[in-house]
Amino acid sequence: MNEPLTFLTAWLLGLMGSVHCMGMCGGIVGALSMNGPKPTLQLGYHIGRILTYGALGFAAGIIGLWLSESHSNVGLVLRTISGILLILMGFYLAGQTQMLAWIERAGSGLWRRLQPLSKGLIPTHSLKQAIPLGMVWGFLPCGLVYSTLSWALVAADPVKSASLMMVFGLGNLPALFSFALLTQQLTKLKSKTWVKLMSGTFVVGFGVWTLYATWSTQI
């Protein structure tokens, strides 16, 4: 496939989307460190979260594979939708539109069913609690995750789609892992307009790149 579905791209999407991720997951990361920084528990939480991303990517890859085998032109349609979603998500991250807020609201129904599973895992004292907690919170309705998931679906390969989503999770690991240690400073940083604009512009760029790679071969 010629489209830019590369692991570097997935990692950079996670890294540059970290501003949004700190807003979505920062609360639970902070809760894990209420009794002082515990890197082992933090790592366990993120392992669980990334495992969920991988499972979602695997499911998306199966759907993408089925669609690509069932319809000859579906790949072109999926890549176009993916590029458009990434562009809209970039503007959303930059604070320029609320058009994709509905994606997060759409996932709230599933989240309300899953969230009670985390109640017995907080406060978290061991890896046996941290990893399942991360797995549950991996389903937190996040527009960036859903947009990246639609992008990974285009790979039409369960293993590759799962790997792309896990690498995406690794991309936002540095910001979230340091959140507990530098909460105040990072909170101020993620609220700065230039940080939002930089992150949003980067994601928009990948969306434009995806559309270009899709349609340049059709002209």
Rank of each mutant, 00 (worst) to 15 (best):
L76R: 08
D157H: 15
W111E: 09
K190R: 11
K192R: 12
G27W: 11
G83V: 05
G44L: 02
F202L: 11
M24F: 09
I28E: 14
H20W: 10
K196L: 11
G205A: 14
W137F: 14
V77E: 07
I62D: 07
T214R: 02
T6L: 08
A60I: 14
R79Y: 09
V204A: 14
A106W: 12
T201H: 04
I131Y: 00
P39I: 08
P158N: 13
Y92S: 14
K38Q: 13
A162P: 11
F168G: 10
I84K: 01
K190D: 00
T52N: 09
S163G: 14
N73S: 08
S33T: 00
Q184C: 02
E69D: 06
L117M: 15
Q184A: 11
R112W: 05
L100E: 06
P123Q: 00
P116W: 11
V19A: 12
M89A: 15
W102L: 01
L144W: 08
G27P: 07
G27A: 14
L86P: 04
S216Q: 12
V167I: 15
L93Q: 15
V203F: 09
V29W: 03
N172K: 05
T9V: 15
L88Y: 11
M1Q: 14
S191G: 11
G200C: 09
S163E: 10
I62R: 13
L15D: 10
A152W: 10
K128N: 02
C21Y: 06
F206I: 15
Q115G: 05
R105M: 06
L133N: 00
K192A: 09
F177G: 02
F202W: 11
K128L: 05
A130W: 00
T148G: 10
L197C: 05
A156T: 11
F202E: 05
W194T: 04
W11M: 15
I122A: 00
S178M: 04
T187N: 15
I103M: 03
K196T: 07
T193R: 14
A55E: 10
P123T: 00
M89I: 12
Y53E: 10
A94V: 11
G138R: 08
G44A: 01
S161L: 07
V77C: 04
P39K: 06
S150H: 03
I219W: 03
E69I: 03
W111T: 06
L153V: 07
L170C: 13
I103D: 00
L164P: 12
Y53W: 10
I81A: 09
I122C: 00
T217A: 06
G200R: 07
Q185K: 15
A94N: 14
W66G: 08
G138I: 07
V167H: 07
K192G: 03
L32Q: 02
A155W: 14
G64Q: 04
E3M: 15
I131H: 02
T40V: 10
L176K: 02
Q129W: 02
D157T: 12
T214G: 05
L85Y: 03
I103A: 02
G90W: 09
